[in-house]
Simulated scan of single mutants.
Amino acid sequence: MRRLAFSLAITLALAACGAEPIWAPDEAVARARYVSGERPSITLYTVVRKSGNEGAHSGLMIDGSQRVMFDPAGTWHHPTVPERNDLHYGITERMRKFYIDYHARETYDVVEHKIYVSPEVAELAIRRAEAYGAVNKAFCGNSVSDILKGLPGFETVPRTFFPNKIMNAFAKLPGVTTKIHHDGDPDNNSGVLMVQASFGNQSGY
């Protein structure tokens, strides 16, 4: 996959999940709100090392009354996407692609598992993600499994620190679709380092 022209002005640290408490102001969150118009769904993104197939990171996109991305202890961000403690608002289709493109590289694939849910389940997942708080280093899988565990229809997803265990359980849920995102970009991710100022105010974000 060709590197997207627009991307993120931050340095990658894939395996090292780490996050600081962040709280975007109300007006920024309200302004960024994005409604996809699609059926409510929950999508699990798992970053998997090509050599050895170890899970390196878990992220959760929730598409309900709005589309958000729970990226616990992750390093992904964008200046037009406000964040509150690992929950990112305003996940347009372009931002979704940025998220995937940021993580996929010559040594990592991004595995996408998507399942349609009721509006009530999607909203409950958003509320859980909003209430979860900033996630500590190496707790990305644990926090994603905490949010999923106990949601109606997700009872078989275990509480675990391991992204692959979450992925394998999620993949067995009825109706799940799977997509694998490959990218041959260098492992140092130098292609995603660029100034955002010229793009941050353009429409489509």
Results as ranks from 00 to 15, higher is better:
V157L: 06
R94P: 00
R94W: 09
R3M: 14
I62L: 06
T43A: 09
G74R: 00
S41T: 06
F154K: 05
A13W: 11
T75N: 13
I126H: 01
K114E: 09
F161H: 07
L193G: 08
H182I: 05
M95F: 09
M61W: 03
V121L: 06
F139R: 12
T75Y: 10
S198D: 12
E54N: 10
F162M: 11
S190C: 15
T43V: 09
S198L: 09
R105A: 08
E20S: 14
L148N: 02
T156G: 11
G175H: 05
M95H: 11
A129W: 00
R128F: 05
T43G: 05
V81L: 09
F6I: 09
E120T: 11
L151V: 05
V135T: 07
S190L: 12
V110L: 01
V192M: 09
G59C: 08
L12H: 10
A138L: 14
W76K: 03
Y102N: 07
Y205T: 08
A122I: 04
R96I: 02
G141R: 00
V195T: 14
N201S: 11
A5W: 11
A125I: 03
N136Q: 14
R3N: 10
S51P: 04
Y205N: 13
V192D: 07
V29W: 02
E93C: 08
V35H: 11
T160D: 04
A16Y: 12
A56Q: 11
E38T: 10
T92V: 07
G64L: 06
Y89W: 11
M194A: 08
P79F: 07
M1W: 15
S190I: 15
P25H: 06
K149H: 13
G52C: 06
L87Y: 01
L12C: 15
R159G: 05
M194H: 13
L4R: 09
G175I: 05
V81F: 03
C17Y: 08
H181M: 13
H103Q: 06
L124E: 13
K137A: 14
G64I: 04
D26E: 15
A73S: 09
H182L: 10
E20P: 07
A32E: 02
